[in-house]
Design a binder for these strands. Structure first.
Length: 546
RNA sequence: GUCCUCAUAGCUCAGCUGGAUAGAGCAUGCGCCUUCUAAGCGCACGGUCGAGGGUUCGAGUCCCCCUGAGGACGCCA
């Protein structure tokens, strides 16, 4: 909660109680920042809302309210009635500037919320199959997921970052057969990659490495017999590569859960037994169905095919059961848009296990179209023509890429303009923010100063703009965490950088006379801390020099 | 055909649980470096919020319908 807004809410709550003998919950008191400066620093529509409870004219109610407000205690300089009944507040600048001290004292912890009994979240993202390189869609998911977990931690939640490794399905056999073909090609044999296999260049590399290690040991082996070696080796190599690429992208996970391990622990079977025992299944056409339609899915789903084998959904249900049993309060899945049809059945199965719908959030990360030279860049995994995450990093850099992906709401379709992302210029928004930080560092490097006793000289409009924005940082983080919307942090960063650049151009710092000089230096320091903390939340480096 | 997401300035996007004259960035035009980093600042230009209904003091935001874009609809994963 923004400390200034909180002070206003406290005061308004008391005023309502005093004037109308009403005990109004805090949620009903809305404080806004007016779009127009003439409307003051903060405003409330409280009088208009009160009309629904108390009869009367909103402007008259507003007047009564104002008369009940203790201006001094809440740092209010003046309050005016405007429009249909808005109350506009101007704040005392000394009250506002005291936030500078708060920020400097908190330093890296500014913006961090401490929750007494925080909910424990498990956030699962990326979870790409270990069968090839990560593509731009995964990259977007990685950037958003990683940022979200940073933001949630800062907002005081307990967070576990998780990757689900699909190492048990048919796709692994396809990968193994493709690797087998690449290996035999490396041994000089004429062997085609299967039509439904993986054609990416990553497997050519892995095959070459394998040949370096074992020579031609698998060359003359029976194909079915050698396949198991390719499966094991390929899986390991692909997984290592995933971790390596993600690490380069500053994305790391706390837990990697293997699908195979769920089978090995008997969890898949146990999950099946539970569903059957709870009466959520039935047999038809020789297959076992899960009655997901009991929970708003549009059709029932097959768990066991008529040939006796399991469908993909069963281990996935077991996986969610497993996560819940590990003690998390809430599960969050970030899925690519191509999996959105999956939400209904997953939610249904989750409820069939006896859990509440609200304990599983499934968010969709929309696709990212790649634009290069002004044209869409079509991707095809089948032909291996996909652009890999590591290529994107080489081209645009981690900071620009992460910023770009996180800056848009995750449920919107977005274009990734590679030309723009790789441009080191003002066309690229990430540099705008980093440049602001570098400027602050430059000032702080050159100026010796001691912490001022008071900030009474901080009264300039641009100084106050900065302070109000910084006061909002903790609340913004909580809001972004709650709504699972990391892009809000990017918007905030952009606003803060703008406010600083404007301040910079209007107010000199180092050449100012004391005591204002030191007070402004403290303001710059507080801004630098806030901006750095915000950038940290999205995994973008706060550069000290550019 | 059914379902999901989206539609806001020339382009890419914001718009918090409904609030005052719908906002940024880029692009375009014009100013600003003898002063702390010009990767910057200021001003201007730019909109029937896809179309049409409805709900109310008040709608870009909520409801209905239509149009358009992307995606999902398998005893594949």
């Amino acid at each position: 909660m923004n400390v200034i807004e909180q002070a206003l809410k406290n005061e308004l709550k008391q005023a309502v109680s005093k004037a109308f003998s009403l005990d109004l919950p805090f949620e009903d008191i809305i404080i806004e920042v007016p779009k127009l400066k003439e409307h003051g620093d903060y405003s409330t529509n409280l009088a208009m809302r009160l009309v629904k409870i108390i009869k009367g004219n909103p402007r008259a109610l507003a007047q009564t309210l104002i008369e009940s407000i203790d201006f001094k205690a809440s740092g209010i300089k003046s309050a005016d009635i405007a429009g249909a009944g808005f109350i506009n507040f101007k704040m005392d600048t000394l009250f506002l500037s005291s936030i500078i001290q708060t920020i400097i004292d908190a330093n890296a912890d500014y913006g961090t919320t401490v929750q007494n009994e925080p909910l424990w979240f498990n956030v699962e993202y990326v979870s790409a199959n270990p069968t090839g390189d990560l593509h731009p869609g995964h990259a977007r998911g990685a950037a958003i997921g990683d940022s979200l977990t940073r933001i949630m931690s800062k907002a005081g939640y307990k967070v576990t970052r998780e990757y689900y490794l699909n190492d048990a399905g048919n796709q692994i056999n396809n990968m193994a057969r493709s690797l087998q073909a690449r290996y035999l090609q490396a041994c000089g044999l004429d062997m085609a990659v299967p039509e439904d296999g993986y054609h990416g260049k990553d497997l050519i590399e892995i095959a070459a490495n394998l040949k370096d290690e074992v020579g031609t040991a698998y060359k003359d082996m029976d194909l079915d017999e050698s396949l198991t070696h390719f499966r094991t080796y390929g899986l390991q190599a692909e997984t290592d590569k995933l971790k390596e690429d993600l690490k380069k992208f500053r994305v790391e996970f706390d837990v990697w859960t293997s699908e195979r391990s769920l089978y090995d622990q008997g969890l898949v079977k146990k999950t099946l037994d539970t569903l059957v025992a709870n009466g959520h299944t039935y047999t038809a056409d020789g297959a076992l169905f899960l009655k997901t339609t009991d929970y708003e899915d549009d059709k029932d789903r097959v768990l066991i095919k008529s040939d006796g084998s399991y469908t993909y959904i069963l281990p996935d249900i077991a996986y969610h059961l497993n996560k819940k049993q590990r003690g998390y309060d809430k599960l969050v899945d970030l899925l690519g848009a191509d999996h959105h049809g999956y939400i209904g059945r997953l939610q249904a199965a989750f409820q069939a296990l006896g859990y509440k719908k609200e304990d599983l959030y499934v968010d969709i990360i929309q696709m990212a179209r790649m634009i290069k030279d002004g044209e869409e860049f079509k991707l095809s995994k089948r032909t291996g023509k996909a652009v890999a995450l590591k290529d994107l990093i080489d081209e645009a850099g981690v900071d620009a890429l992460r910023y770009y992906f996180v800056s848009r709401a995750s449920d919107t379709h977005m274009d990734l303009d590679l030309d723009m992302a790789s441009k080191q210029s003002n066309e690229n928004p990430v540099y705008y923010a980093q440049y602001a930080h570098a400027r602050m560092c430059s000032i702080l490097r050159q100026g010796e100063w001691t912490m001022p006793e008071s900030f009474e000289r901080i009264t300039h409009e641009k100084e106050i703009d900065l302070i109000k924005l910084m006061a909002d940082f903790p609340q913004m983080i909580s809001d972004a965490a709650e709504s699972r919307a990391p892009h809000k942090v990017c918007l905030y960063i952009q606003k803060l950088a703008t406010a600083f650049h404007t301040f910079y151009s209007e107010c000199v710092v180092l050449k100012e006379e004391e005591p204002l000089r030191s007070q402004r230096l403290a303001l710059v320091k507080a801004t630098q801390i806030t901006l750095r903390n915000a950038l940290e939340c999205i995994g973008v480096e706060a550069l000290e020099k550019m």
